[in-house]
Design a protein around this nucleic acid. Sequence first.
DNA 1: ATAGATGTCCCCCGCACGGGGGATTGGTGG
DNA 2: CCACCAATCCCCCGTGCGGGGGACATCTAT
Lengths: 220, 220
Amino acid sequence: MSQVRVLLVDDDHLMRAGLAGLLTIDPSLEVVAQAATGAEAIVLTRRYRPDVVLMDVQMPGLDGIAATQQLVAEIPEVRVLILTTFELDDYVFGALRAGASGFVLKRTRPEDLIAAVHTVADGEALLSPSVTRRVIDRMAQQPMPRLSGTSVLETLTPREREVLGYLAQGLSNREIADALVVEESTVRTHVKHVLNKLGLRDRIQAVIFSYENGINEPRQ
Amino acid sequence: MSQVRVLLVDDDHLMRAGLAGLLTIDPSLEVVAQAATGAEAIVLTRRYRPDVVLMDVQMPGLDGIAATQQLVAEIPEVRVLILTTFELDDYVFGALRAGASGFVLKRTRPEDLIAAVHTVADGEALLSPSVTRRVIDRMAQQPMPRLSGTSVLETLTPREREVLGYLAQGLSNREIADALVVEESTVRTHVKHVLNKLGLRDRIQAVIFSYENGINEPRQ
DNA sequence: ATAGATGTCCCCCGCACGGGGGATTGGTGG
DNA sequence: CCACCAATCCCCCGTGCGGGGGACATCTAT
């Protein structure tokens, strides 16, 4: 793999700019898109199909770990490299549980970061040396926790879950608006949020999601 | 049942006015509300709980057949009497599949229309004489299409069943076209036929139909 | 006190979709 | 031979939908 397509995900645009500039040192790396939130990362990953997603853990809304979980579940080919400032246990293990391919600290030297991107792009796993110790320690005592431990549904607000219920029944925005006694524009907003948070393309995918996840039970 | 409560549904307000006036000839009929769209019909049916819904087929937005389907599914007690100007096959069978109790032409004489309302209010089914012919014709060659049966699927051509399979997976017309290696316009035609034959509003309802009828099996 | 989350509502824009036609080619059956 | 169906493709047209924004009020937690 010569050319590696990279998606940057960080809520701080200065950090994104810095990373983008840093990665352009290597001409075989191409930053195809940048996202400021986890939800945006999912949308952009679907659109641009990057080889590697450089993902910050700390973000408002859908955080890096939840986003990673959804990304990997939907697009297994994508490699997620987690970036963080501190080496917090929760982040490390949460990220690996979610299916991340690697985990590097932001204070890593530029050339090492570039090397890390290439490593995960090649399908290898990668951990910052200072992190490796923690991982093998914990691996020894604990079995690997389940992938779907925390439901994506929990990222939805109560109202959004309600809207998803109506989406699952195939109702239009107008019909949902009538049912909830709000404006259609409000329903549109809720629907947008539901689709973004769940990483779904459109309301049709929401129907399928509902059946596949038991929100809709096929009546016989 | 002495007093019959009626909901009028027609996008043409002149037609509604005409029907309303016509029905007031019979003091045992009471027009409790009027709707201009299918969606409105559903809302008003919830609110006013009419005995009979006099429903036009041709309406912008949610058409009479789709509205009937939802109405009957949600409120089985309500009797839907379909009104139309022309006796088109798609309308007739789509409406009956959707759960309509009757089907009358707008050119029916006033006293016959009033009689029709009373008939369906009593729980009987009713068809305009000119429509009955078509129904028994079709009955002769194939069993009455019904909601729960798989017989409706047999009205689809092989290609249409194939398209339904892709619809069930939530694919767009473009994606189905690529899968079948035909033009998108061809897929559009197939999709139209599938929706018409199954009496479905849109591809979203097709997804739901597929799950409810075992075309899609929810995994796990 | 300030920030964040939530719910409500608004705008513009472009595209996919479904309904309304119609046309052509190849079979198949009466 | 002719009628019919199935499958393929075309047009126009209106609208529903999703993405991109933003605005405002309320409430909660820091």
